[in-house]
Amino acid sequence: MPAKPFLTIEQQVKLLEKRGVATSDRTGPILLREGYYSIVNGYKRPFIDEQASGKAGDDRYQPGTTFDSIYDLFSFDRSLREITFHYLIRAEATVRTAISYCFADAHRSPDDYLLQSSFCTREEYESYGKDPDNYAEELTKLTGILGRRAKKSESEFVAHYRGRYGAIPIWVLANDLTFGNLEHFFNLMKPPEKIAVCKAISTSTGRLGDRTLGFFDVNTARVSLEVLVKFRNICAHDERLYCARVGGRKDVNYEKMLWMLERYLTRREFYVLLKELLELFQDGLNNNRAVATVLEELGFMELQEEIMRRHAKAS
């Protein structure tokens, strides 16, 4: 299939109009600033007339569709990403501190993270649902990443510590690791240290012994970290969030992710997050009919039901 030809902003506007989208004076400037692909290709789906598109052989939009409606949905998802990212990086910081603290507490030499003996065995790796055939490769990959960061990272704090003290302890190096690196690190920690990480997270967020959430076990941490890392990357890379689904069989939507995120935030942080989300959803419902259709993919009804259930249980 040949590549699509370049279209000027004027041609992009005319193409939208040809396909049934009402435009305005602000359509061109918005397309120039944000990009046709990001807005239209990313957020057209709720507005498409499937039957008319099938007959025409290209996109055709439902009667009454305006460019502003598509852009409003784009803007809604951007706001959703901004709110979500703010709390995901708080969770990331909590995980980073817990992992580095618990590892350093168990391994007192500053460069113990370079030793494969500091991490779990193949059998322990398998016991947590990981493919044992990947064990050696994953362990070599992790220690390689840690070694390169310790020797070559140009991050100010790592370079300063390296120049002044030589070896870089994990509690310094951890600040130069990505959330994905941290997930990788957690999966390869020794079992008692994984348990210690879960306890540290629960303690630091004030959720140790939380009757609503229950016990924070290692398997719950493993699964939730994988999900949070993927959602964090979606937000960081400005990808479409409202319909994102990750995890095994792509069965974790936004609403399910929220309840996983809860464990990594204080109660106050989490309820402020819920308040901000509910305000965003209500504003979207008041101003854009498309938001009503995407709230189902977000798991909005399930979110409301769980909030109501908790309120009833608490009262």
Rank of each mutant, 00 (worst) to 15 (best):
P2H: 03
L7E: 03
E10D: 06
Q12W: 04
L15F: 04
L16D: 05
V21S: 05
T27Y: 06
P29E: 09
I30C: 02
R33H: 08
S38F: 08
I39E: 05
N41E: 13
Y43C: 06
R45C: 00
R45K: 02
Q51V: 14
D59Y: 11
R60W: 09
Q62N: 07
P63R: 14
P63H: 14
P63M: 13
G64P: 12
T66G: 15
D68K: 07
S69D: 13
I70R: 08
Y71M: 01
D72Y: 04
D72L: 07
D72P: 02
R90I: 14
T94S: 09
S100T: 12
Y101S: 07
A106C: 04
A106Y: 06
Q116V: 05
Q116L: 07
S117C: 07
E126P: 00
D131I: 09
D131K: 15
D131E: 08
E137G: 07
E138Q: 15
L139Q: 04
L139C: 01
T143C: 10
G144A: 13
G144I: 06
I145T: 08
R148P: 01
K151M: 08
K151C: 00
K152V: 11
S155L: 14
S155W: 11
W171I: 07
W171Q: 05
W171S: 09
L173W: 03
D176Q: 10
F179E: 03
G180A: 15
L182G: 04
H184C: 00
F185L: 09
F186G: 06
I195R: 14
A196C: 02
C198F: 06
A200R: 15
T212F: 15
L213C: 01
L225T: 12
V229A: 09
K230I: 00
Y242I: 02
R245A: 10
R245N: 10
G247M: 01
R249A: 07
D251A: 12
K256L: 08
K256N: 08
L258S: 05
M260N: 14
L261C: 02
E262R: 15
R263I: 00
F270K: 14
V272A: 06
E276Q: 12
E276G: 00
L278K: 13
L278P: 00
D283E: 14
L285G: 14
A290Q: 10
A292T: 14
V294R: 05
E305T: 10
E306I: 10
R309T: 10
S315V: 13
